[in-house]
Amino acid sequence: MNRNVMVLAEHTAMQVSEGTYELIGEARELASALGGVTEVVLLGPRELAGQLRGADVVVCVDHPALADYLPEAYERALLEVLSQRAPRLLLMSNATVGLDLGAALAVRWDAPLAAYVSALGIDDGVVTATAKILGGKVLAEVELPGERAIATVLSGAFGTDADLSAAAADVVEVTPPAGLDALRMSLRQVIGAGVGDVDIAAAEMLVSVGRGIESQDNLGIVAELADALGVPLSASRPVVDAGWLPKTRQVGQSGLKVKPRAYLAFGISGAPEHLEGMRNAELIVACNTDPGAPIFGVAHFGTTVDLFDLVPALVDRVRG
């Protein structure tokens, strides 16, 4: 059985993503436990291979259709690499690329997939994973049976303290599969991030609101506190998806990463996608009626008092 652990590298504008190094660090530990090596798949410009420090082998497929991420092109190229290199385990990010390709590869490569992974291990030769589900409230410990497996890994799950200074010993080129010239989709344009009415990433303090606010009508309550403090109102994804606040106010993986001096979270349970966007704030105070809410795992101070009682009390005191 193959013992190698493979990582799919992600890159934009000729830069390999931070998350890729995190995956390489974890792959090295798993490969060592399995007695194999770490292979990193680079789809796109070969000159990026030099950036992939920490890999034992870089497997490169260079083709114009792979210059930027395009699901069908990536999937076809990756399947070609998987069939040639046959790794024991493939690691991808649990962001757009992993959400897009993971389940399709599981079908086409016939391997079990664990998503939302926060921890990985090798137990007597079996790959094990911990998946964060139900908005981060529950951890599912699973086995990935068989001789090959796929895991999509949450950003921030592993530290980046592994020594990745060594350049890859070997760069292997794989001939692009013919399918890359007959794609059923094409990339029309890359659109940069928009600029909103307020820049929440630049704010010294944020009052942030989540699903617990229950309705758009209730937003006024927390908006009043933000007003009294003279800081912007931000939100977690459900509030923005419901159309209650604009996208530019969204904190999280699909919104903006923020690092204010204080982050006051009201009615936010703390799904992994949200924690990724705010866990580095200097002071986090969380208010959620569920004592088991994952937000309390990253907050410095917490309370289970109802936000509808707490926020007006705060407004009174701030307004003096």
């Binding site: 079990p112 529950v138 599912a140 410990e141 086995e143 795992g297 990253v298 008092v305």
Partner: peptide
């Protein structure tokens, strides 16, 4: 082929937050 579930448990939240006590 799917996953084999070993165990489910709640998120460990005892790690960090100091809980503030009292009424609102």
């Amino acid at each position: 082929r799917g996953l084999v579930l070993r165990r489910m448990h709640g998120t460990e939240t005892t790690g960090r937050a100091e809980m503030l006590t009292g009424d609102a």
